[in-house]
């Protein structure tokens, strides 16, 4: 464990909690893409199946349960509890165009052709594009609530910190996982446009609105 991975995990946890609290406190999931949240629940489910097969540490196991629990709680709140506030008309990204090719890619490019490893690879590839429905929705509505931008900021920051974690681990441990690194770079690049808007607008107290 190193400082980049720890702050990365905490940033990821912060993002998940911010979103959960935003929906719970405001009793509304306006502006939130349910499709992205379903993809994140799928990412955690396919990645953390090793909860059943291997124990790494209490930290690792507990964080996995927290991530999975929060992800499904968020999906439940969007599609069941606060369904009336779900903005389905703007959440129209065709996720099947993501899931199917990524499923195929996971079969072709992986470290080991075993079920758990292919599911892990699928989850890594899927996570890199899982935010696209959310970013697409914001581009369609032309704006985002400030609390939602904070959610996206911490979510984007976590994988950027993981990139530094992988540099650290390569230098000090000789560890590197090309699949995770390439997907992590793609994932972080997808946030760059948002990061620019977040720094130039939200941090200056303005609302995040895109030129319609």
């Amino acid at each position: 464990m190193n400082i980049f991975r720890l702050t990365g995990d905490l940033s990821h946890l912060a993002a998940i909690i911010i979103l959960l609290l935003k929906i719970w406190k405001t009793r509304s999931c306006a502006g939130i893409s349910g499709k992205s949240q379903i993809l994140f629940a799928l990412v955690f489910t396919t990645r953390y199946l090793d909860l059943l097969t291997s124990f790494i540490s209490l930290y690792n196991t507990s964080m996995k349960f927290i991530y999975i629990g929060c992800a499904y709680a968020t999906v439940y709140m969007i599609y069941a509890k606060f369904k009336a506030t779900y903005d389905g008309n703007h959440d129209t990204f065709r996720v099947e165009f993501l899931v199917v090719p990524i499923g195929g890619l996971a079969f072709l490019v992986n470290h080991d052709f075993s079920p758990l490893e292919i599911l892990w690879t699928f989850s890594i590839y899927l996570e890199s594009v899982a935010i696209l429905p959310q970013l697409f929705m914001i581009s369609k509505t032309g704006e985002a609530e400030t609390i939602t931008t904070h959610y996206l900021f911490f979510l984007g920051l976590y994988r950027a910190l993981y990139l530094m974690n992988w540099i650290w681990r390569f230098y000090f441990e000789g560890f590197f996982d090309m699949i995770a690194i390439v997907a992590g770079v793609v994932q972080t690049i997808l946030y760059c446009d948002f990061f620019y808007l977040y720094v130039t607008k939200v941090l200056k107290g303005k609302k995040l609105s895109l030129p319609a």
Binding site: R5, D9, D50, N60, Y67, H111, E173, G174, F175, A180
Partner: peptide, 10 residues
């Protein structure tokens, strides 16, 4: 090269 344990990251 993959790290010591299969996937020790979240």
């Amino acid at each position: 090269m993959i790290g010591r344990t299969k996937h020790d990251e979240l």
